[in-house]
Nucleic acid binder design. Structure first.
Length: 926
RNA sequence: GCCUAGGUGGUGGAACUGGUAGACACGCAGGACUUAAAAUCCUGUUCCCGUUAAGGGAGUGCGGGUUCGAUUCCCGCCCUAGGUACCA
């Protein structure tokens, strides 16, 4: 029988499922290894051929690690709360839970077709009450915690209450809201319950605060910044406005420093680390106050406090709260018109317009904090209200934007360093000694900064300060299909429900839209009250809630008493390898690290970082095909279609054509006639008897007819071919377009493997003879290559190496049992079905490859034979030396001189130097 | 602008710490088997010159440099992709 992928793959997928072959043991004496995929959102469209790329890579790695003797945890689940199911519910009335269930079943079917080695007994679904119960529980932990900066960790809110009871707010060093009160212990005890709770809320890691949010009226919900694109919603393109709302927030800024320093301890791709660093945006500097008369002052943040004496003016953001008060009557008209102009500019305009210098003088002056000189106060839109204090001190000699601004408005430019050259532009160097700088004149940068900070602190006009770009994360969504927040309100104060009342189930509603009064959809749930009287929180949690801790649940997914038992967490610790797309760099990956740290601080586990090694798989783009429809004189489409090479001779327009009826860019013209009814009588202008289609790389989407479903590939070529081919396509981390052009080669490879160990009649046929040296060499080459490749995630070159290996074995007509047995083990991670079949044909126990031992590479088999090897003379390739000459340096020199063949190349010149690489002469310098 | 990754045949890509550039695969061309097709196998395939050939020359985005030797290291520039943005 020839290689029949269909029956082989179905047989083994069934066997693995029935025998739970890949169920992970709870505990074992093997070392553990945790391989995790970013779990998918189960969308209605199903998987396309791009989705499994990362899953295949992680599956190869998992299977490889099992063979290497590790106890591997390799689970899968679904991030099943989300907007698409809710949108569908709004349109059709179908409950999102039903939609989600249907989609998950479809995903599962498609995943199973590919032959993954997931332990499905550990599956999680974030929308499942058994799961979101623990998401709610973690929310409670966050609510019940505060960040103690002295201990540099989160602690139970009870320790804060104890401090308030004993010392009041004295000596509390916490991450908190800006507006915390100052009180003594006696005051605290005298506070009403309501006052106490309001104060505590300012310290909690999950807290309620009025924040400006992106409100989308059409969707009736708040959107994250990255869900808003150019002022409209990413989904649907509805207008978005800024609105103040009471919102749940997460005090992620408390962890800014740890989130930053933790990046040094993880093995992540550099671009991704860089993205997180930028996102956190730490700047070390100082805050400085420029006093106003008669009282008050403008606080600015600067990273270059040493340039303080170069300040020639101060700039406020147009939205800054002091602008109104500082504007003099003469300047009022100009200032107001400027503010109005800025407000009209969209963010896009402001971005595009970085070249134009604009700003207005307010008419007022501040005092320089040290010299007391008058400093003009300006407003300009290059200063952002949302960053720092919304005000900057302008140092034209040291900052290019300030320089351009000063030139434009004829403001003074004061050089402050003897090493500055400010003829043409600002010079921010820190190398020289200061001039024009009062008491720091003659100092270096290193001396000046502490001196200035000390002086400012003495004057109470400034201090060293660290500023972060990152903001606290808003944690509420005005949506239905998310986790309910386990909170109710009494006198407007949020209280947690009791732990034993979890899960707080998502209530049924009649419609999935906001209420008539603008409340979130949960407001529609009839009689949904805590203890029949208190209003529940009506927002649900955002999409990232459930995904911020899911790797813990896989460790112990059935546990009813805790999110994961201590034993499970202590055993599995952190994820050793995490594979997913880079689009989650500043969302999921940051929030997950945050929750992980909180849970660590609260003593639930020991790991500071959740994902030790991370690989980003590149996106697989679509590769669209085009046909060219000839137009008539009036510009209307005819039923003639011209092949790519001839299209320039005609007036024609490109049309997307379904990539599934195109093979190697050659159109199947018969299938094309049934593609659309109006193509039924299509005529073709061919080249060389073929219709060649044009191509273009685009995103994979239905409307472009370039979606390739993995099921179709599997039907034609099988899952093993799909797995190998997706790896063969190129480096894992690189984005690449999908095309089926090379898949035949991979399919041929598998058939060759099959035929090598079957006779002409199709019967399994192995020889019991001892393999020859050449056969061992072919085998051990692949053992070494695959091991090296997998360890550095270079899967594509392994596939090539397999092909070479099998070509060599075919050449040698090698069907030896010993060779096959080891070849199966090495190939199994890539092509698990065909190897499982051959494994059992050899008489081994079914489903037991993962207990096999990975063959040990023996370098002796790879020792070069007596063949000649190349040597260059003066770096130019000249000749081959027989291996017999490969002796030590001295001997070679003698032989070289005496060898007539060599002498011919050397033109009688003396040998100056012999270059050796790995004990071999590689080059002769004459 | 800044950060990151990359630029190699008709195509996808290989070359791991500098050592015969183009592995492997697709495609293409020719051939074998076959009544024929499919399947399979063999040969060739970077470009240019050379009648096939022997042989020679150029060649890894561009221009320099280091080295006996550079796709690889260094400097400058161009282009592409992703991220980020008037961040003080």
């Amino acid at each position: 029988m020839d290689y029949n992928h269909r029956s082989i793959e179905q047989k083994w997928q069934k066997f693995w499922a029935e025998n739970q072959t890949f169920k992970t043991a709870e505990s074992t004496d093997k070392p553990k290894y945790y391989v995790l995929d970013m779990f998918p959102y189960p969308s209605g469209a199903g998987l396309h051929v791009g989705h499994p790329l990362g899953y295949i890579a992680s599956d190869i790695f998992s299977r490889y690690k099992r063979l290497k003797g590790f106890n591997v945890l390799h689970p899968m689940g679904y991030d099943s709360f989300g907007l698409p199911a809710e949108q569908y519910a709004i349109q059709t009335g179908q409950h999102p839970a039903i939609t989600t269930e249907v989609n998950i079943n479809r995903y599962r079917e498609q995943l199973d077709n590919i032959g993954f080695s997931y332990d499905w007994s550990r599956e999680v679904r974030t929308s499942n009450p058994d799961y979101y119960r623990w998401t709610q529980w973690i929310f409670m932990q966050l609510f019940n915690s505060w960040y103690n900066k002295d201990a540099d960790k989160a602690e139970s809110i009870d320790t804060l209450i104890d401090k308030f009871n004993s010392f009041g707010s004295q000596g509390i060093n916490a991450e908190s809201d800006e507006d915390v009160s100052v009180f003594f212990a006696a005051d605290w005890k005298a506070f009403s319950e309501e006052e106490q709770q309001r104060e505590l809320l300012k310290y909690r890691l999950a807290y309620l605060r009025e924040s400006t949010v992106n409100w989308c009226a059409a969707l009736g919900t708040v959107l994250a910044n990255d869900e808003v694109i150019n002022g409209v919603s990413e989904r649907g393109g509805y207008p978005v406005e800024q609105k103040k709302m009471m919102q749940w927030s997460m005090r992620i800024t408390a962890y800014a420093d740890r989130l930053l320093s933790g990046l040094d301890s993880v093995d992540w791709p550099e671009p991704l680390v860089e993205m997180q660093r930028n996102w956190i945006g730490k700047s070390i500097g100082a805050s400085v106050i420029f006093p106003l008369t008669p009282k008050g002052g403008i606080e600015v943040f600067t990273t270059r406090v040493d340039t303080l004496f170069g300040v020639s003016f101060v700039v406020l953001a147009p939205e800054h709260e002091l602008v109104e008060a500082l504007t003099t009557d003469e300047q009022r008209a100009a200032v107001e018109s400027y503010i109005e102009k800025t407000a009209k500019k969209s963010e896009l305009d402001r971005m595009a317009d970085t070249k134009t210098v604009s700003g207005v003088f307010t008419g007022s002056y501040a005092k320089h904090p040290i010299t007391g000189d008058d400093v003009q106060i300006w407003i300009a839109d290059y200063v952002l209200a949302g960053y720092g204090t919304g005000a900057v001190m302008a140092v034209p000699s040291g900052d290019q934007r300030d320089y351009v601004f000063a030139k434009h408005f004829n403001l003074p430019i004061i050089p402050i360093s003897d090493s500055q050259n400010i003829e043409e532009q600002a010079d921010p160097n820190k190398d020289g000694k200061y001039i024009n700088s009062d008491f720091i004149n003659g100092m270096t940068y290193k001396e000046a900064v502490p001196a200035l900070v000390a002086k400012l602190e003495e004057l109470k006009l400034g201090k060293a300060k660290v500023n972060f770009r990152m903001r606290d994360a808003i944690f509420g969504r005005q949506r239905y299909w998310g986790e309910p927040v386990p909170v109710y309100f009494k006198s407007g104060i949020p209280y947690l429900i009791k732990e034993e009342e979890l899960p707080l189930l998502l209530p049924e509603v009649d419609k999935y839209l906001p209420t008539e009064t603008g409340e979130p959809p949960l407001g529609r749930a009839e009689g949904w009250k805590y203890q029949d009287q208190y209003e529940y929180e009506l927002s649900t949690m955002p999409g990232w809630a459930g995904s911020s801790w899911y790797w813990f649940r896989y460790m112990d997914s059935q546990n009813q008493d805790i999110f994961a038992s201590k034993e499970a967490v202590d055993y599995w610790k952190a994820v050793d390898l995490y594979i997913g797309g880079s689009e989650h760099a500043t969302g999921h990956l940051l929030y997950s690290r945050f929750w992980n740290k909180v849970l660590k601080d609260l003593g639930f586990h020991q790991e500071e970082e959740p994902f030790k090694k991370l690989i980003n798989q590149g996106m697989i783009q679509g590769r669209s095909n085009f046909v060219y429809r000839v137009l008539d004189d009036e510009g209307k489409g005819t039923n003639q279609f011209v092949s790519l090479g001839l299209k320039d001779q005609y007036n024609c327009i490109p049309l997307h054509v379904d990539v599934n009826i195109v093979y190697n860019d050659v159109l199947d013209t018969e299938k094309f006639k049934t593609f659309r009814p109006d193509f039924a009588d299509a005529e073709f202008i061919l080249e060389n008897g073929k219709y060649i289609c044009g191509t273009e790389v685009e995103k994979m989407s239905k409307s472009k007819f370039n979606v390739v479903n993995p099921d179709d590939i599997i039907e034609t070529y099988g899952a093993d071919t799909l797995r190998l081919y997706e790896m063969f396509l190129g480096p894992l981390e690189q984005a690449k377009p999908w095309n089926t052009n090379g898949i035949e080669g991979v399919y041929k490879f598998l058939r060759k493997v099959w035929r090598l160990f079957h006779d002409a009649e199709g019967n399994f046929n192995v020889s019991e003879e001892e393999p020859t040296k050449a056969e061992y060499k072919a085998l051990h080459k692949i053992i070494k290559k695959v091991e090296d490749d997998i360890e550095r995630f270079s899967f594509n070159t392994s596939v090539s190496a397999f092909m070479i290996c099998v070509n060599e074995l075919t050449e040698l007509r090698c069907n030896k049992r010993q060779i096959l047995q080891d070849l199966i083990i090495v190939l199994e991670p890539y092509a698990p079905h065909i190897t499982e079949e051959l494994w059992t044909l050899l008489g081994n126990e079914a489903g037991a490859i993962s207990y096999a031992t990975y063959p040990i590479f023996n370098p002796e088999y790879l020792v070069e034979s007596e063949f000649a090897y190349p040597v260059s003379i003066n770096g130019k390739m000249k000749m081959n030396l027989p291996l017999a000459l490969d002796l030590d340096a001295k001997a070679v020199e003698e032989i070289v001189i005496g060898n007539t063949d060599v002498q011919r190349y050397l033109d009688g010149k003396a040998v100056k130097k012999l270059i050796f690489v790995k004990g071999k002469i590689i080059n002769i310098v004459v």
